[in-house]
Design a protein around this nucleic acid. Structure first.
Length: 258
DNA sequence: TCGCTAGGACGTCACGATAT
DNA sequence: ATATCGTGACGTCCTAGCGA
């Protein structure tokens, strides 16, 4: 118990330290802002010249958090819901879901399960898991048109006018509902331009995945911090109770027998 | 109302750990 | 050996709160 307490205290103080570090970072930020950072390209350049994280500062808080997690009683952290498929949201607010068998479904509302999703039949046998592919999707009612680049179970969503213009999009097959077009991405790249496009696409995919991962990571961290705070509250309560109990016992034993 | 500050959320990069 | 994942660090943007 005592060791847990001290660890929780240590955790709290490292929280303070990290807050201080954040203040320092902000100060540095402001100083950096005072330099000429108006140009986005310069900013990019600065980013690219940046030192690596490990060089700048050592690991602190998280390592400790992980150590403590093994000792304290399991918190009621709700695990990420197990979804029957991957679900993505487009910048038009629609949700694209991949079912286990590789089918794609589109919905305008987030699927609690996957009910209410509108099935999107694919034009050929290419499954998203097996090959990279592009789906162009346009709504019947509107002029909104988007492209989805898929590789494995990942999807990259862009407006049809976006950077993926290098891809060849087949002429829509009239039999396809909702203007759905599906093509295989070029299997063999030859020209430097194609290679560059491939590299760009790979990079976009990696960035997208990392974005998702960072979001998930933050969510987990927040949940864990909340859990720790609860734990602190519980321990403080216990501590108070024990102190009162001790006081009462002292009163009994220290009272002089008549 | 305006400027400043703190805090939160996000995207990106780098890197270690783990899986294939 | 290479790919993928998870996460710390950083820079940026946005917003709420506060004092002048």
């Amino acid at each position: 118990m005592a060791s847990i307490d001290s660890q929780v205290q240590e955790q709290a103080s490292s929280g303070v330290l990290s807050a201080l570090a954040q203040v320092a970072r902000r100060r540095a930020n402001l100083e950096a802002k005072n330099e000429d950072v108006s140009n986005i390209h310069k900013r990019r350049e600065r980013l690219s010249r940046r030192q690596t994280c490990r060089e700048v500062s050592p690991d602190t808080v998280v390592t400790k958090v992980e150590e403590i997690q093994e000792e304290v009683a399991p918190c009621n952290v709700t695990p990420a819901p197990i979804r029957p498929a991957s679900v993505y949201q487009t910048n038009h607010g629609q949700f694209i879901a991949f079912t286990q068998d590789g089918a794609i479904q589109i919905s305008s509302a987030f699927p609690g399960g996957l009910q209410g999703l509108q099935p999107l039949p694919l034009s050929n046998s290419v499954k998203p898991q097996s090959a990279a592919a592009i789906v162009q999707y346009s709504q019947e009612t509107g002029d909104v048109s988007q492209q989805f680049f898929m590789q494995g179970n990942n999807v990259l969503v862009q407006a049809a006018t976006g950077e993926m213009s290098g891809y060849q999009i087949c002429t829509p097959t009239s039999s396809l509902p909702q203007g759905v077009v599906m093509v295989e991405s070029p299997g063999s790249m030859h020209s430097p331009q194609q290679m560059a496009e491939e590299a760009t696409r790979k990079r976009e995919l990696r960035l997208m995945k990392n974005r998702e991962a960072a979001r998930e990571c933050r969510r987990k961290k927040k949940e864990y911090v909340k859990c720790l705070e609860n734990r602190v509250a519980v321990l403080e309560n216990q501590n108070r109770t024990l102190i009162e109990e001790l006081k009462a016992l002292k009163d009994i034993y220290c009272r002089k027998p008549e």
